[in-house]
């Protein structure tokens, strides 16, 4: 079995100060090196909060997040090893894509080997010189994707990566994700499109009301629910209000 890349133990988070809403309740999750894990679950289940906790964008109340055995809660330097593709790519509209990339290079210190494969396959060359405000939503999303992969990070965190991409771009991105997994990178991905996760995921974690209701390999999910596709399997889990951690 592969090594442990990310270990999350007892992660809890509540939002709000007056009416406190629990978003994550004692989440335990293990992500192994070189695998793609899909975080699935209904809207508001805590998928984005979980992802943002790994990045330190959201501060957990309790619990630990270990990356390669080191607790990273409250740390900064470890993020140089993560490539993050946020769900919404509305960055400063007067900057060009090239300037955004330049900024990330500056902020990261520029020691990593640059992986320009996505920039090239998306054919982003001419678009990078233009301010983001004149680019279409799809093109901005391509820039967003290319930036996540640019620094050859060990860990890729992708929040709804194919949202807004046309089928060709989406295929290119999926090929890239699989190629990077093959190269030993670890990928954490969320998506609403189950067919897409079926192509990508090795493991599936099902989040329900801030708890991990199920975690296992793609095949296990399908076997346990006795369904042929991931979409059907997740639908079955959702309708039963699945509570058994496997």
């Amino acid at each position: 079995m592969n090594q442990l890349k990310i270990q999350i133990t007892g992660l809890s988070k509540r939002f709000g100060s007056v009416r406190v809403v629990p978003v994550l309740s004692t989440v335990d999750l293990v992500v192994r090196t070189g695998r793609v894990i899909a975080i699935v679950g209904p809207n508001g289940a805590g998928k984005t909060t979980l992802i943002k906790s790994i990045l330190g964008l959201t501060r957990p109340e309790t619990g630990r997040i270990l990356i390669d055995g080191n607790d990273v809660v409250g740390q900064d330097a470890y993020r140089s090893r993560i490539g993050y593709m946020p769900q919404i790519a509305r960055f400063q509209e007067n900057l060009t894509g090239a300037e955004l990339i330049e900024m990330l290079k500056d902020l990261r210190g520029g020691t990593a080997e640059l992986d320009v494969q996505l920039l090239e396959s998306f054919g982003l060359g001419p678009a990078l010189g233009q301010p983001l405000r004149v680019l279409s939503g799809g093109t901005r999303q391509k820039v967003n994707a290319a930036m996540a992969f640019l620094f050859s990070p060990d860990i890729l965190v992708l929040d709804e990566p194919t949202a807004g991409l046309d089928p060709l771009a989406s295929s290119i991105l999926k090929d890239k994700i699989l190629a990077d997994r093959g190269a030993g990178r670890t990928v954490v991905v969320t998506s609403h499109i189950m067919n897409e996760l079926e192509e990508l995921a090795d493991d599936v974690a099902f989040l329900l009301d801030g708890r991990i209701a199920f975690v296992g390999t793609l095949d296990e999910v399908k076997r346990i629910t006795a369904q042929a596709t991931l979409e059907r399997a997740v639908a079955t889990m959702m309708s039963r209000g699945w509570v058994r951690a496997a």
Binding site: L55, D76, Y84, I88, L107, R108, G109, M147
Partner: peptide, 16 residues
């Protein structure tokens, strides 16, 4: 407020 996603992008980098 408009810079929200930009700020998130920066904070996802190794910065304080």
């Amino acid at each position: 407020y408009n810079a929200r996603e930009f700020v998130e992008l920066i904070l996802a980098q190794p910065v304080r």
